[in-house]
Design a protein around this nucleic acid. Sequence first.
RNA 1: GCCGGCGUGGCGGAAUUGGCAGACGCGCGCGACUCAAAAUCGCGUUCCCGCGAGGGAGUGUGGGUUCGAUCCCCUCCGCCGGCACCA
Length: 850
Amino acid sequence: MNFQRKQFPFSEYEAVWQRRWVEEGAFRALNPGEPDFDATRQKFYILDMFPYPSGDGLHVGHVEGYTATDIVARAKRMQGFNVLHPMGWDAFGLPAEQYAIRTGRHPRETTNTNIAKFRSQLQSVGFSYDWTREISTTHPEYFRWTQWIFLRLYHSWFNPETRRAEPLTTYHGDDPDAVRLAYVAEVPVNWCPGLGTVLANEEVVDGKSEVGGFPVERRPLRQWMLRITAYADRLLEGLDALDWPEGVKLLQRNWIGRSEGASVRFSVVGQDAEIEVFTTRPDTLFGATYMVLAPEHPLVKKITTAGRRPEVEAYQQQAAARSDLERAELTKEKSGVFTGAHAINPVNGETIPIWIADYVLMGYGTGAIMAVPAHDERDFAFAQKFGLPIREVVAGDGAAGVDQAFVGNGRAVNSGFLDGLSTAEAQRAMITHLEATGAGRGMVTTKLRDWLFSRQRYWGEPFPIVWEGGRHRPLEETELPVVQPEMQDFQPTGTPEPPLSKALEWVRYSENARRETNTMPQWAGSCWYYLRFCDARCSSRFVGREAEHYWMGNRGVDLYVGGTEHAVLHLLYSRFWHKVLHDLGEVSSSEPFHKLVNQGMILGTDSHKMSKSRGNVVTPEHVITEFGADSLRLYEMFMGPLEQMKPWSMKGVEGVYRFLARVWRLAMRENAGGQWELSPALSNTPPTLPQQRVLHATIKKVTSDIEAMAFNTAISQLMICTNEFVNVEPRPLEALRVLLTLLSPMAPHICEELWSRLGAAHEGFPGHASTQPWPTFDPALLEVAEVELIVQVNGKLKDRIRAQRDADQEAVLDAAHASPKVREAIGTGQILKTIHVPNKLVNLVVRPTA
RNA sequence: GCCGGCGUGGCGGAAUUGGCAGACGCGCGCGACUCAAAAUCGCGUUCCCGCGAGGGAGUGUGGGUUCGAUCCCCUCCGCCGGCACCA
């Protein structure tokens, strides 16, 4: 293949069209208020998850989603929509900073170099982005508004009465810092010495940093937090109306992890202390035979008896030293120690022992549980190991086994006033009882934690905050953006003190005030970029009201395509910010992304994930040089369903390349001098009826397949259509008109080129292929007078018959019985039943004569 | 362990309100063109038996529902992803 001459001259025209598109602003989306803006057209906002511009550049896997959205964007334009299809850069992040640490090169430099490379790569694939809206999260004119949104969070609180974010002015309590959506807390964080930074829980995998794989340890530190937990219910409810993959919704639901139950207070015998527990099974309260506190629980120190103290403290130290990884590995084997203290069960006055154990987590619920070993597997395992009593309080269906916990629903037994009630009834009755006696109340918890929002890095958004006399104070909006100082030394300080703390002049804000030296996490910039795209150059607001209202409408981004790796975090954080901004009256829709599609991963030709170390990376440049951008685009889509994981194949690229060559030769031929000229077979004769049928069937299928994003079958249909006209003379120009229009969103360069060449010599090819109105099909042409039906005997195919479309059963059966093959299959058997599916089949159920 | 997704020719995949399994492409085989090759064009290509006509099997496994199952239900196996002591 390498030595062959090209089958069509893609290298001569692809770059030409790409340059024209950029220079002429061919795909510029107009905002309301701009000259030529057409308000009668519907809007369609189609967005890719914008990339982090890494030094490695894009490979063909990244291009898959972008190709899909580009096809939809191009098709929607032809279908008369105002299409917003932008691209930008999520360019803050660790790699640029680490590169700076190694080389001393400023992250801004490497970032700009990488952005230039990414942009040129994307342009070489011919994507129809509106480049006038290009943004980078690292640009001060962008991140001033990221900081502005942070200030809005800082100045707001979540009002539980209205279930909305409101300005702090509506808060009448005495401690605003306790309710702010952005607040400071001393929290145990994941400190990663290797990276010199604190990480979010989500960035820690198996006790190691997700980036770099360095060990991570827990230590308490003062951090900025965002109160996302206040929005747990809203984030959960909002999912219902979204057109997202159910799997992604489920991931988010599980991540939020809402569970309903009750909190119950147990008093500690002989001490002025109460332990509050959370349980989802208040109906089993009579079965609580001991309690467990997390080792880190603040009450442990207070209640532990003198005699037990050494053992308890030893256990606490051991638990603290254990990494999350080690804890996970030790799941099977329960451990714990007795504190020497006892608590009183508020429903029956029973005295039960209080233990500590690391199977109870400080971070969930109240960090303490009542243990009901008969009905909880973990409590059961623990009770067995330490010889604690097990008391059945829920009777299941079968015989009550003592060898394992029964966790299902049943009838309450040994439970006083609950006896005989079903689990659901008992739960309600118990909560009523607890609330009446003041011993507890109904309660909801979530797994979702508040969002740790500060990082000890240089290459991120600085906080618009200063510290004065130990207190934080927000900067005025007029002081934005807060730009990082120029620095030469990016080396981490080796302590949790961020690198910005080394820029002493910058840190010193005034005589008495010092700047916050943490920066925001990478998620910050990506939380709202889709809003900025609506009005990327607006200088008076984070997005102009009218532009936001038009493009975001009431359902937000119409189509959002990206990888599953963002199924939880990015999509949850964005939804959270969006809801806050919505509550504060800044954005129109209640959700940012109406429809979400996850593209599958593209594997290397060896069926492994593409990686530099494996050496199986295929770059777009490589494919474009050899087969052209259109072949690249087409193969990306022809491989299989967008959502699916699939391996790359260069032979497959050749297949679509040959198809494009056939399309080229439909219009062109090579003359004796080796020059391409218009094919003399082309003619203005109308297509024959069979040809028209193929053309209209193709219009129908390609239209619906693009709508369904089933690009592989759309391409397949275009191949069928093309094959229909290969070697046909005379070759109707109408066929090319339809074919090039339908193919244009997928392979825009070849279509544009052929369209202009045809237009130079023939009528009926005005303007550009990419600006033609989308063709419509004539249903009458697709209806046939005669259909073929299959005839089965006992469900087995025996023959095919022809019949008038919608012929009645009698006529069809007559024809079926006329078939010798069918007669033979029936033989002397008796026909018991006849099934006739109009236009499809006849099935005769026959009992053979025995 | 729990939750979710997926198992179809030599390969990527197509077909589901339950009705012709394998569209389209790759690969492979044969032929045309050519001095020859490449490219191109045509024909064939699920597997097994058969020279053939034809017959049989077949959508991960085993069962079920149905006139009829790749499609619906249950069992098991394999692969991928997520969560992982969440009370």
